[in-house]
Amino acid sequence: MTRAIFYTATTLNGFLADDQHSLDWLFQVPGGEGGGDDFQRFLAGIGVLVQGSSTYEWVLEHEELLAHPEKWQEFYGERPTWVFSSRDLPAVPGADIRFARGEVVDSWDQIRASAGERDVWIVGGGDLAGQFADAGLLDEIRVSIAPATLPSGAPLLPRRIGSERLELTDVRRAGAFAELTYRVMSPDRSVHVG
């Protein structure tokens, strides 16, 4: 069964990105560039990615993907990517990028179908993951906590999700990071989403 997983890294004080939506802070942490064996196993189970416009635009700029579209394939492969945005954004040449507007629930059936038998990775940002949680579509949160802080920025999950909806299922050390995995219960608090 297809699950929606928010897998991200955050600072110790709960920010995903700085005030300019940059992840440069993450790449300064040893191991922050990702790509280890655990991440590769996770990625092998992913059929589709979902991103918000700020995340997508940062990746476009940081990786210079419009000039070097082959980098997209190196990291994401042939997986479809859904980008939620209220603005028109450029697509990476040769990549299967599908733009969506409006409520996540309105696109969920198409997103799930494009994942096939694999899971959906909600890459970011936190507000988009929160929209999935609000709609009862978020199954799991995996957060790697980095040994870094920021004075301000984009919060991990800018909404209230009570402890009655989150069940800690795993804790592990990954180099300098502490990784926490939570199963997310539906908003009615009685039923597991996935």
Results as ranks from 00 to 15, higher is better:
residue 69 P to C: 02
residue 42 F to Q: 01
residue 178 A to L: 11
residue 55 T to Q: 14
residue 146 A to W: 06
residue 132 F to S: 03
residue 182 Y to A: 02
residue 179 E to I: 09
residue 138 L to K: 12
residue 188 D to R: 09
residue 146 A to F: 03
residue 14 G to C: 03
residue 112 R to Q: 15
residue 103 E to F: 08
residue 90 P to R: 10
residue 173 R to I: 11
residue 25 W to K: 09
residue 70 E to F: 06
residue 154 A to Y: 11
residue 35 G to Y: 04
residue 89 L to P: 14
residue 34 G to L: 04
residue 71 K to N: 15
residue 76 Y to F: 14
residue 25 W to C: 07
residue 7 Y to L: 06
residue 56 Y to F: 01
residue 135 A to N: 02
residue 46 I to A: 06
residue 190 S to C: 15
residue 83 V to L: 02
residue 174 A to I: 15
residue 159 R to Q: 12
residue 8 T to N: 05
residue 124 G to Y: 04
residue 127 D to F: 12
residue 53 S to L: 04
residue 20 Q to V: 08
residue 127 D to A: 15
residue 133 A to Y: 07
residue 10 T to Y: 06
residue 135 A to T: 12
residue 62 H to Q: 12
residue 66 L to E: 04
residue 22 S to L: 01
residue 55 T to N: 09
residue 78 E to V: 09
residue 171 V to G: 08
residue 113 A to W: 06
residue 173 R to V: 14
residue 144 S to N: 11
residue 1 M to E: 11
residue 53 S to G: 13
residue 159 R to E: 05
residue 130 G to N: 06
residue 25 W to M: 01
residue 181 T to Q: 10
residue 118 R to H: 14
residue 2 T to H: 05
residue 72 W to I: 08
residue 151 P to C: 00
residue 91 A to W: 04
residue 172 R to P: 11
residue 29 V to N: 03
residue 59 V to T: 14
residue 110 Q to E: 15
residue 28 Q to H: 12
residue 83 V to H: 00
residue 91 A to Q: 12
residue 94 G to W: 13
residue 122 I to E: 07
residue 143 V to W: 04
residue 79 R to Y: 00
residue 54 S to P: 03
residue 156 L to W: 09
residue 7 Y to T: 00
residue 58 W to S: 06
residue 68 H to W: 06
residue 100 A to P: 11
residue 145 I to T: 08
residue 158 P to N: 07
residue 75 F to A: 03
residue 111 I to W: 02
residue 45 G to P: 11
residue 27 F to H: 15
residue 69 P to G: 00
residue 72 W to D: 08
residue 47 G to Y: 02
residue 35 G to E: 01
residue 117 E to C: 03
residue 55 T to H: 12
residue 98 R to C: 03
residue 12 L to T: 05
residue 153 G to E: 05
residue 187 P to F: 07
residue 168 L to P: 00
residue 140 E to T: 15
residue 160 R to C: 10
residue 182 Y to K: 03
residue 88 D to Q: 12
residue 2 T to P: 14
residue 142 R to I: 13
residue 138 L to W: 06
residue 68 H to L: 04
residue 53 S to I: 05
residue 154 A to G: 14
residue 89 L to I: 07
residue 20 Q to C: 08
residue 54 S to D: 14
residue 128 L to H: 10
residue 170 D to Q: 14
residue 71 K to M: 07
residue 103 E to I: 07
residue 50 V to G: 10
residue 120 V to T: 09
residue 124 G to F: 08
residue 69 P to K: 10
residue 139 D to E: 02
residue 28 Q to L: 13
residue 183 R to G: 09
residue 72 W to Y: 15
residue 148 A to Q: 14
residue 138 L to G: 06
residue 160 R to K: 14
residue 99 F to G: 00
